[in-house]
Simulated scan of single mutants.
Amino acid sequence: MLPDYLSAEGEQRCRRLLAEVTVRLRARPAAAAVLVPLCSVRGVPALLYTLRSSRLAGRHKGDVSFPGGKCDPTDRDVVHTALRETHEELGLVVPEEHVWGVLQPVYDQRKVTVVPVLAGVGPLDPQSLRPNPEEVDEVFALPLTHLLQAQNQGYTHFRQGGHFRYTLPVFLHGPHRIWGLTAIITEFTLQLLAPGTYQPRLAGFSLSRR
């Protein structure tokens, strides 16, 4: 039986593990931040995802992502950016005290820094949310038990100029394929929540070392 990831003990363990990096990264400027919403759907612990609008400009339209976006000059820090963007995209208000901490940053192909912010958003019905149709086509949740099953995990190899560059995780068999930075952040989250259960697909891999 899997542990209760939403328990007070589990939350405190995660907060302790994230405390040092949270203090350091909150004070460091970043280009963008996303919220990693840990929720409970009909009593089942899950992660909440969005499907980016197909009407958006750029190469990531129609991709699965966590709510978030570019840091605004008026944002106090990356936590404020993640909470503000979540409210703008989903209409979901997450109090700052519900933030568990900040995960290690990831970097896109242009070396833009994206900081993931983990927060517990409590019991939630994804269908009750009213996402901004200009930014989000769909909202869905995937149970942690689904994400932790080996048959739902995979990886992709990337080549550039005819040479192998790196490997990234992929999560399969949900409503939509989870890949790219969102899959990396999902992997970081599972490593934190289930260190004895989740076996990383990318042992020792970190985009921060690219």
Score class of each variant (00 low, 15 high):
Asn132Ala: 08
Cys14Ser: 14
Thr182Glu: 07
Leu124Trp: 11
Leu103Thr: 00
Gln109Ser: 14
Arg28Leu: 12
Ala183Ser: 15
Glu20Lys: 14
Gln127Trp: 14
Arg177Pro: 04
Val106Lys: 08
Ala46Gln: 05
Gln127Lys: 15
Lys111Asp: 14
Gly68Phe: 07
Val44Cys: 01
Trp100Arg: 11
Ser54Asp: 11
Phe171Glu: 00
Thr22Ala: 02
Leu124Thr: 05
Asp108Val: 01
Cys71Tyr: 06
Thr189His: 02
His176Ile: 08
His173Lys: 15
Ser128His: 07
Ser65Leu: 12
Val21Arg: 12
Arg159Pro: 09
Val44Tyr: 09
Ala203Met: 07
Gln160Gly: 15
Glu187Cys: 06
Leu18Cys: 04
Gln151Asn: 13
Leu168Arg: 15
Cys39Glu: 11
Gly180Thr: 02
Gly180Ile: 01
Val64Ala: 06
Arg26His: 08
Asp4Arg: 03
Arg110Asn: 15
Arg165Leu: 10
Leu142Tyr: 07
Cys39Asp: 08
Asp77Phe: 00
Pro67Met: 05
Asp77His: 06
Gly69Gln: 03
Glu138Cys: 01
Val136Asp: 04
Arg84Cys: 01
His173Arg: 15
Arg16Glu: 12
Leu35His: 02
Pro131Glu: 04
Pro95Met: 09
Leu2Thr: 00
Thr156Tyr: 14
His146Met: 08
Phe140Ser: 02
Cys39Ile: 08
Arg84Pro: 04
Arg159Glu: 15
Tyr49Leu: 01
Tyr166Lys: 07
Val94Lys: 02
Val112Trp: 04
Glu20Leu: 14
Ala150Thr: 05
Thr113Val: 13
Leu92Asp: 00
Val41Pro: 04
Tyr166Phe: 10
Gln191Ile: 13
Gly174His: 08
Glu138Ile: 00
Pro195Ala: 13
His87Val: 08
Gly58His: 02
Glu89Val: 12
Arg16Leu: 07
Pro3Gln: 07
Val79Trp: 13
Pro105Met: 06
Gln160Glu: 15
Leu6Cys: 11
Asp137Tyr: 00
Glu88Trp: 11
Trp179Leu: 12
Val64Arg: 11
Ala30Ser: 03
